[in-house]
Amino acid sequence: MVDVKRLAAEVLGVGESRVRISPEALDRLEEVTTKADVRALIKEGLIYAEYAKGVSRGRWRELHEKRRKGRRRGVGSRRGSKYARLDPKEAWVNKVRALRRYLNSLKRRGLIDAKTWRELYLQVKGGRFDSVSSLRAYLISNNLIKQQR
C-alpha cells in the first residue's frame, strides 16, 4: 500500500501532521496508488488539511492593555537604557513645548507682561527650567506672579 498521508500532504501542500483522513475513507485507502486517486478523495471531502494553528495575540493584548494603563513600568520590567526608552531630544522637545504653553497661557491671562514673557521665553530656550513646576516656583519666589491655586 502506498503511503496515502504522504501523497495527500504533497497534493495539499501541507505537512503530513496536518493531513486528516475521514473514518469513512479508511476502507477505500487500499485502492489508492497515485496522486490522482488522492485528489479524487480530496474532492469528495474524505481527505482534508487541518487549519494551521496560529499564535494567539491574547497574552500580548492583555500585557499591552496593562502597559497602556501605566502598569508594569517598574525597574524590573525595563529593557534598554534610559535613553533607549526615551530619546533625549524628544524629552527636551516635550519639556520646552510644555513650558512655552504655560508661558503663553500666563501672557494670555494677563499675569505677566510682554517684557517678562520675553525674558522667561529665552530662559526656557536656554534650559534654565527643568519643568513647569520649577518655572512656577521661580515665578513665585521672584514675585513675578501671584501664587496660583
Rank of each mutant, 00 (worst) to 15 (best):
R68I: 03
G15H: 00
A9K: 01
L29V: 14
L26C: 11
V75Q: 02
V75L: 12
I140P: 00
D27I: 15
D37V: 06
A49R: 07
V132Q: 06
L29A: 13
R59P: 03
R72P: 00
P88Q: 05
T116A: 10
Y102K: 06
L135R: 07
V93W: 09
R78Q: 15
V2K: 08
G76P: 02
E31Y: 13
D87G: 03
A84I: 02
V132K: 09
R136F: 10
G126H: 09
T33H: 11
V14C: 12
V11T: 00
D3T: 01
L99R: 01
V38S: 05
E16N: 10
Q147Y: 01
S17A: 13
K89H: 03
R97Y: 06
E31R: 14
K107M: 03
W117E: 01
L144Y: 12
Q123C: 04
L103R: 01
K66G: 04
L63C: 00
A52G: 11
T34L: 02
L86T: 14
H64I: 02
K35T: 00
I21W: 10
V93C: 05
G45R: 08
S141H: 13
Y138V: 13
A40K: 12
V93H: 06
E30N: 13
Q148Y: 00
T33E: 14
R149N: 05
L122G: 13
I42G: 11
K5A: 05
M1W: 01
K146H: 01
L144N: 03
E62H: 08
G70N: 02
G58K: 11
E10R: 11
L63S: 07
S22C: 12
R18I: 05
L139K: 02
V2F: 05
L144F: 11
R97I: 06
E31L: 15
D37T: 01
D130E: 15
R109L: 15
L46G: 04
V4S: 03
Q123P: 05
R97F: 07
A40W: 06
R118Y: 08
T33S: 12
E24I: 15
R18E: 12
D87K: 14
L86Q: 13
E30L: 13
S77V: 12
Y138G: 09
G110I: 15
G127R: 05
N143Y: 13
R79N: 09
F129A: 05
I47H: 04
G80L: 08
Y102D: 00
A114D: 13
V4T: 11
V11N: 03
E44T: 09
R128L: 14
S105V: 08
G76Y: 06
V124M: 04
K82N: 06
L26G: 10
G127M: 10
N143S: 14
V132P: 07
L12A: 01
E10P: 00
G126F: 03
S56E: 15
R71W: 06
P88R: 12
D37S: 05
K69D: 10
E62F: 12
G13E: 08
E65G: 04
A25S: 14
K69T: 02
L99T: 04
A8C: 07
R67Q: 13
L122S: 15
I21H: 07
L144K: 07
E119S: 09
K43G: 12
A114F: 06
L106E: 02
